[in-house]
Design a protein around this nucleic acid. Structure first.
Lengths: 136, 136
DNA sequence: CGGTATCCGGCGAGATACTG
DNA sequence: CAGTATCTCGCCGGATACCG
C-alpha cells in the first residue's frame, strides 16, 4: 500500500489519477488497511445506534485491542466515525458512523457486491494458473 | 494489508464478512496494492484496444518496470487482464482487460466517484484534528 | 523490449505488558 | 474498560543489475 504521509501543500489536490495524492489512491490507502472496511461495515449495520468499544470488538472476530483502537482513531480523525466518552469509572466509549461514514459505506457496498459475485471467478483463474505451472 | 496466502480448503468460501478469507477482504487485498487500481483504470480507458507494456508504463507515471510487471502478472493470474505475446525480436507484449476486469472497473468507478466527491472532507477533518493537537 | 533476480528500507500489524 | 507503549516480524515496493 502507498505510504500515507502528509501532502505537500498546493499539489495534486484534484483528481488526476496518476498523482500519488489522487483521491482514489488516498481512499484505497484507508479502506485497504486490514480492519477498516470491517469496522465501517459493523458500525453501518448498527447505525444509527452507537456501539461500545468492547461490543465492537466482539463483533469483529480476530481484531486485537490495539488494532481496533488504531483503526477507530484513524476513522475518527478522518471524520468518518464519531466518538463519545461517558466519563464514568470505568469509562464507556461509544462509536458511530458519521453522515460521511455512512456515505462511504454505500460506496463500499458496491465493492462488496462485486466481490461476492466475482471473487469465485478470480479463485478459479488462480487455480487454472497453478495447473499450468504443474504442467510445465 | 492482509497477508495474501493460499486458502485452506473448505473454509470461509462464502461471504461472511468476518472471515479473513471473505471476498471483500480478498478484493481489497488486490486493489489496495499500489499500482493495481491505476493499471485497471488505464487499461479500461484504452479498452477495447490492447496496450503494449511500454505504452502502459508511459501512461502510469511513477511506476517502475518491476512493479508494473508484478502488477500485470497478478492481474493476469486473477483473470482480470489478458496477455498476448508477439514472438518477434524483440518481443511485443499486449495487455487488455478481460470481461471480468471490465466489470471490476465499473465497481471501482463508484469508489473513484466517492473519493473525488468526499476526500476533501476527509482532508479537512484531518486538519481540524491537527489543530486540536496544537491547542492542547 | 519486456522481463527476472537480488538487495534493502519502511510500514502494517500481531503479541505482550502497562496505565488512568 | 479502553486505551497506549514497546518489540518484533513479514511483506510491499523501490533501486539496481542482468537476461532472452
Amino acid at each position: 500500500m502507498t505510504t500515507r504521509g502528509a501532502r505537500p501543500a498546493g499539489r495534486g489536490v484534484r483528481g488526476d489519477l496518476f498523482d500519488p495524492y489522487c483521491p482514489t489512491r488516498q481512499l484505497l490507502d484507508r479502506i485497504g488497511t486490514k480492519w477498516t472496511s470491517m469496522a465501517v461495515k459493523t458500525l453501518a449495520d448498527a447505525a444509527p445506534d452507537e456501539v461500545r468499544f468492547a461490543e465492537l470488538r466482539r463483533r469483529m472476530p480476530g481484531v486485537s485491542q490495539k488494532m481496533l483502537s488504531v483503526t477507530l482513531r484513524s476513522l475518527t480523525r478522518d471524520g468518518l466515525v464519531s466518538r463519545r466518552v461517558e466519563p464514568t469509572v470505568p469509562p464507556r466509549v461509544f462509536y458511530r458512523l458519521t453522515a460521511l461514514g455512512l456515505s462511504l459505506e454505500v460506496a463500499l457496498a458496491g465493492l462488496r457486491t462485486w466481490a461476492e459475485e466475482h471473487m469465485a471467478e478470480i479463485d478459479r483463474a488462480n487455480e487454472v494458473a497453478d495447473q499450468e505451472i504443474g504442467e510445465g
